[in-house]
Design a protein around this nucleic acid. Structure first.
Lengths: 237, 237
DNA sequence: AGCTCATGTGAACGGCTTTTACATGAGCCG
DNA sequence: CGGCTCATGTAAAAGCCGTTCACATGAGCT
């Protein structure tokens, strides 16, 4: 019974009653503290107050637990992005930037989920339901890109929405993964990750011909070429 | 002596003679096969034909071995990027794109190095010499960005080179990390990672006011606003 | 009340990391 | 050449982890 920690939880009998949930919660705690590599199955069991063998009644092995967390992470992620996108209100560009911020916020505030989702080294094709969850989350970015692409200024070739979505995703993931988490991979930056990503996306959108200095939402007013105003990186000296 | 594998190597006596190197090489093999998580110290020792305790004469622990690999990776990375940049020849934009391709090529061809460098979950501040190596590699991108920023079209605010460098780095890392390696994280893409990154960088540069459809290198010829020609993503339908 | 099956336990196996005391022999010094 | 010394490697052991298996428990159904 050395594993029985009685850490403040209600007394329980032979059966835990909610072990699967308790294990997922414990794993989240542990991963956010020590990274997905430092997390151990036995620790999670200890934290839930059960024997080291008990988790095997709920997860085939350690990887399946991590995959479960990743999946749950993608679901929360999708919901967060959906909310941030808010169907493009009040205008497409504003909503789009809100999605970028939400991406970073998720990476920062849920590092355990984020690393389980993107840095756990699981084969993504191993778990079809996991991949489906991941694709549903990406679909939000994809949908936003679609709407944005439709707004591309006339007289220019329309950028493929899928490509735009992949670009935005890679920017967001790149910033989040290199600079995003408070603890890991801290490099000295001249600006916050949020500012960095926002500037990056704005410059990118300008490169596609968008005029990012105003927010018409749906109206494309004048035709002045991009690049004659202050940039998105604050005041030029 | 079960650990003695005699795998084709020259016979040796009590002393290995080159164990440190052999361990690094073995670790590279193992990491590229099974990821940085799957790699074990004992396996590396076995592969080098020594007892499981021998590696401790050369590395304080498993993490120090991985850090050594990461450091060596950053050195090779720096050398590769330097070579790709080639001091901006034949022209800045061309050289810049070559750097992007070199980044992806490194991630693809040296996945073991790449994951040790960016995905091993080591605290980057733990090892000052490692961080220094990482900064020397980044300095190449930084220097390239500096040259590019100096070329920014007149009449526009100059983008800060440091910001450009961080943007380029995050794009490259994002693409490499999400889509770059053949095995891991494969998602179906409408284009190759190289094309994806090249388009992304070109659009970004256009957003900064660069005219990316020609390669003046140092001369900024005419003034036509960007965005009146075919985009960098191939033919618009 | 009795049965059954999901859920949890204990013990055990093999493997990994790391430490400690000991063995070996390469290189240096005289 | 002979002997010393110390870097390098070995053996053994402790402690942890993942995983499996036979067995225990008791919740829920009939």
């Amino acid at each position: 019974m050395s594993w029985r920690k009685d850490q403040g939880r209600a007394e329980r009998g032979y059966h835990h009653g909610n072990l699967k949930e308790a294990l997922l919660q414990a794993a989240l705690d542990l991963i956010s503290k020590k990274g997905p590599a430092g997390f151990t199955f036995a620790d999670a069991a200890r934290m839930a107050g059960v024997s080291p063998a008990a988790p095997y009644r709920h997860f085939r092995d350690r990887d399946e637990l991590i995959a479960s967390i990743a999946q749950r992470g993608f679901e929360q992620f999708e919901s967060l992005l959906t909310q941030a996108w808010d169907d493009g209100r009040p205008d497409t560009v504003t909503a789009f930037e809100r999605v970028g911020k939400a991406y970073l916020a998720f990476a920062r505030e849920e590092p355990a989920f984020y690393s389980a989702m993107f840095e756990s080294g699981l084969p993504p094709d191993a778990n079809p339901t996991l991949m489906a969850a991941s694709e549903r989350a990406f679909a939000i970015i994809r949908a936003a890109a679609e709407r944005l692409a439709a707004l591309a200024p006339p007289g220019m070739p329309r950028p493929p929405a899928m490509m735009m979505a992949l670009h935005i995703w890679s920017m967001s993931h790149g910033v989040a993964s290199l600079f995003g988490r408070g603890d890991a991979a801290r490099r000295k930056l001249p600006m916050s990750p949020e500012e960095l990503l926002e500037a990056e996306v704005l410059i990118y959108l300008r490169g596609l011909g968008f005029r990012t200095d105003q927010r018409p939402g749906t109206a494309a007013a004048d035709d002045k070429p991009a690049g004659e105003k202050a940039g998105p990186w604050g005041k030029p000296k």
